[in-house]
Design a protein around this nucleic acid. Structure first.
Lengths: 173, 173
DNA sequence: GGCATTTGGTATGGTGGATAACAATTATCA
DNA sequence: TGATAATTGTTATCCACCATACCAAATGCC
C-alpha cells in the first residue's frame, strides 16, 4: 500500500547560469591572467561540472528532471526493494534531505513509498509506470543530446579515459 | 586610501562530508547496482569535485581558506589594478555575492579595497602583505599536499590530460 | 544639462547541505 | 522476557551558495 503524505508542488529547475554572469562584464578590458588557477584541478573540475549540469538540465528540460532526480530514478529502477536510507546513502544524500526530494517525485507520480512487511519502519521505493516511462524518455534524451555532444567534443576514447579518472578520484583519492 | 566597512567575522569552512554520509549505512546489505549512473559523466564529475574540494580544505585548513577564497587571492595577486566587477566576473561570481566574500577577506586583513582615482565608483583590489604571505603559504600547501597526492594517484601525464579535457568542457561545451 | 550606464552595495528568496531531535519500530542481550 | 540500544523516516532548523531586483553614487554620452 502506498504511503501518501501532503502533496508538495514540484518545482521547475533553473538553468542558464553562465549567460547571466557574462552580461556582467560586457565590454571588457584586456582579459585577466588566470595564473595558477588554470592548473588547479579543483577549479577546472567545478567549472566543468557546472557546464555539464547546465547542459543536462537543458537536454532533459521537457521532462523537468534535475540531475539528482534523474539519479534517484535510475537507482530506484535498478534496485527494486530498497528503502530510503539505502538509496539516499549510495547517492550521498543525507536522509533528512532525501525526504523532500521523494515527496516531490511522489507528488509527480514518478515513484512511490511502500511500507515494508518485514520491517515496518522502512519504506520500500518503487517507480510507478509513469516513473518508468519518464526515466526511459530521460535516458534517451540524455544519450541522444547530452552524452552524444560530449562524445563529439572529446572523442569516445577520451571520454572513457576521463570517466575512469574521475571515478578513480571519487573512489580512491 | 583603504575603504573600510563594518567588520564581518570570518567563518571557518566545514569539511569532512563523506564520513558523515558513510555512517548512515553502517552494516550494508549487498551493494546497490549503480546502473547507467557510473556512465553518466555529470555524476562522476560531481563526485570527484566534492572529493577534491574536501581534500583541498583539509590541506589548506591551517590557513582557513576555501577554494573560492583561494581563487580570489590568486586572481587579485596576478591582476593588480582590477576592480570588484572584473575579478568577480572572471571567477563566475555574481557581484552581490562577491561583496560578503570580500568583506570576509578584508576583515581578515588579507586584501583591501582602494578607491580608484580615475573612476571613483570602483574599488581596486589589492592583497595586503599578510594576504600575499597567506597566499604564498597556501600555494605551497596545495602543491605539496593536494596536487602532489593527485599526481601520485593519476600520474602527471594523466593529470595533465584530465585538466585539458576539463578545460575543454568548461570552455567549448 | 539631461539621460542612460556602470559600480558597489543591500535586501531578499531559493536551493542544497548538515545537524539535532523525535516517534515508531526493531535488534540486542542480560 | 524485559529493558535498553539501534534503526528508519521525519521535522525543524541552520548555514552556505546562488540568483534577482533594486538603490545611490559616479561616470559616459549626446
Amino acid at each position: 500500500m502506498t504511503v501518501s503524505r501532503p502533496a508538495v508542488p514540484a518545482r521547475p529547475p533553473r538553468l542558464a547560469r553562465k549567460e547571466r554572469i557574462k552580461q556582467q562584464a560586457a565590454a571588457e578590458t584586456p582579459a585577466l591572467q588566470m595564473g595558477e588557477l588554470s592548473e588547479l584541478l579543483g577549479y577546472s573540475l567545478k567549472r566543468a561540472q557546472l557546464r555539464i549540469f547546465e547542459d543536462f538540465l537543458r537536454c532533459v528540460a521537457p521532462l523537468q528532471l534535475t540531475p539528482a532526480q534523474f539519479s534517484v530514478l535510475l537507482l530506484v529502477d535498478r534496485n527494486p526493494g530498497r528503502n530510503q536510507t539505502e538509496i539516499a546513502s549510495t547517492l550521498g544524500i543525507l536522509r533528512p534531505n532525501f525526504v523532500a526530494m521523494l515527496d516531490s517525485l511522489e507528488s509527480r507520480d514518478l515513484c512511490a513509498r511502500i511500507r515494508s512487511t518485514s520491517d515496518r519502519r522502512s519504506h520500500i521505493l518503487v517507480l510507478t509506470d509513469k516513473g518508468r516511462a519518464v526515466l526511459a524518455r530521460a535516458k534517451k534524451l540524455v544519450a541522444a543530446k547530452h552524452e552524444a555532444r560530449l562524445n563529439e567534443l572529446l572523442g569516445s576514447a577520451n571520454r572513457a579515459a576521463l570517466l575512469a579518472m574521475l571515478a578513480k578520484i571519487a573512489n580512491e583519492f
